[in-house]
């Protein structure tokens, strides 16, 4: 199966404040009591967005200015903590198509890539400038270009970075890994000759 090639993404931004935002905050554990990911979008950042009685807190995702925006602007170490794919699934189903941040936890970044969501790193100053730009002018169109590894947000431009394999997966339309892995079934079977524990050391 060949996936869509993802090279350019453009859309409006959501400036999310704070560093070290963990996956428990992206999707609290109690919403993981489900056997499908389908309904998770509505619970993205739930406890940061709503009081216990359901009233809305001040949060960019509740701000009408950022309604239908698709690019999340995060701080450092975004997505740390649990390996739950429920986190990127909730973001994707909420409508997020890319994340720009200073740094990302590894498992989270990998989980995003296999869903076709680019997570790109930028220098702290550039992320800050982008956040400010979007706060003052929420309709700013942010363009992420994975070919040139640049972001252009209404004239504010800067370099971005991501692991080379993630970039190749997305731009080559190879982000669904199962097909790639199945292609080497023969070599996989041959592992039995290399790994004595597969033969129970006999």
């Amino acid at each position: 199966m060949n996936d869509t090639q993802i090279t350019r993404i453009s859309g409006r931004g959501i400036p999310l404040p704070g560093d070290d935002i963990d996956t428990d905050r992206i999707i609290p554990a109690r919403f993981m009591k489900c056997v499908t990911f389908d309904g998770l979008g509505q619970y993205a950042f739930h406890d940061a967005r709503f009081e216990a009685d359901g009233t809305e807190k001040r949060h960019p995702l509740n701000d009408p200015a950022y309604k239908n925006a698709e690019i999340l602007i995060a701080g450092k170490n975004f997505g740390c903590g649990s390996s739950r794919e429920h986190a990127p699934q909730a973001l994707m189903r909420y409508g997020i198509r890319a994340v720009i941040g200073e740094s990302f936890a590894e498992i989270f970044a990998g989980n995003c890539t296999v869903l076709g969501i680019p997570v790109v790193r930028a220098a702290r100053g550039d992320v800050e400038a982008l956040r400010k730009r979007v706060e003052t002018d929420p309709v700013t169109e942010i363009r992420i270009d994975l070919a040139s590894m640049r972001v252009d947000a209404g004239g504010l431009t800067f370099d971005i970075d991501m692991p080379d394999s993630a970039r190749k997966s997305l731009t080559g339309g190879l982000w669904d890994t199962t097909t790639l892995l199945l292609a080497h079934a023969e070599q996989t079977r041959a592992m039995i000759g290399r790994l004595p524990y597969l033969r129970r050391f006999n």
């Binding site: 499908t36 990911f37 190749k168 790639l180 080497h184 070599q187 996989t188 790994l195 597969l198």
Partner: peptide, 26 residues
């Protein structure tokens, strides 16, 4: 290591796979 993938990643054989109820149904 089983192979190198077109993305440049390594294909890694997993000797033991453990699963639990929260992350596996999907």
């Amino acid at each position: 290591q089983v192979a190198t993938l077109p993305t440049g990643q390594d294909q890694l054989f997993i000797g033991l796979h453990l699963i639990h109820e929260v992350t596996s149904p999907q």
